Computed example of a mutant assay.
Amino acid sequence: MTKQILSPATIDLHAQLTSKEAAIRHTGQILVDQGYVNAGYIDKMLEREAVTSTFMGNYVAIPHGTEEGKKEIKETGISVVTVPDGVDFGGGNIVKVLIGIAGKGDEHLEILSKIAIILSEEVNIDNILEATSKDEIISLFNEVN
């Protein structure tokens, strides 16, 4: 049976993270712990970040692995982490919402498209940051089909 792409187990609200590396590792570790990826995927997420920042603006980063990292993916999944105090992604770019992506094959393109639709509305970013339950996050992501 295929896992849900987003579930309560892949969401962490109100995390306290002090560095970009810690934030990426935490976001990736959720995917590891829930069986979406092998542990090596986290290194590929860090490699991607070293090549180009996954900071998207509006307090959002979307860490994901390199093309080579795809071999570490078992199933498509995303993790959502909120960091109310923010974490510096360099250059004064503060991230408060991290969305980790692991997509099998070309599924990451569809996921990125849906995430882009959600995040194109600043009110949705606010709703993610103000969420008091994981179900609120899931409902927001399920609104886009």
Rank of each mutant, 00 (worst) to 15 (best):
I24P: 00
S53P: 04
G28F: 00
V37C: 02
L129M: 09
M56D: 10
D43W: 11
N38V: 06
G103P: 01
P63A: 01
V83R: 10
Q29V: 05
I30G: 00
N93S: 13
N58D: 13
T82V: 13
T18S: 09
D85A: 12
L98D: 03
E122G: 03
I94A: 11
A102G: 02
T52R: 15
G86I: 13
E68A: 07
I101W: 01
T54P: 07
I118D: 14
G86W: 06
V80P: 11
I115Q: 09
E121G: 10
T54D: 12
T82M: 10
H64L: 05
S19L: 03
V32D: 00
A61G: 00
I94Q: 09
A22Y: 01
M45L: 11
D43T: 12
L109K: 06
I73C: 10
F89R: 06
Y36V: 02
I99G: 07
E72M: 06
I30Y: 00
G91S: 14
Q34H: 11
Y36T: 03
K96Q: 13
K104H: 03
T52D: 15
G100H: 05
I125V: 09
G86F: 10
G92W: 10
V80I: 15
K104S: 07
I118F: 09
G100Q: 04
T27D: 00
G100W: 10
S113L: 14
D85Q: 14
V95D: 07
S79Y: 14
Y41S: 08
R25P: 01
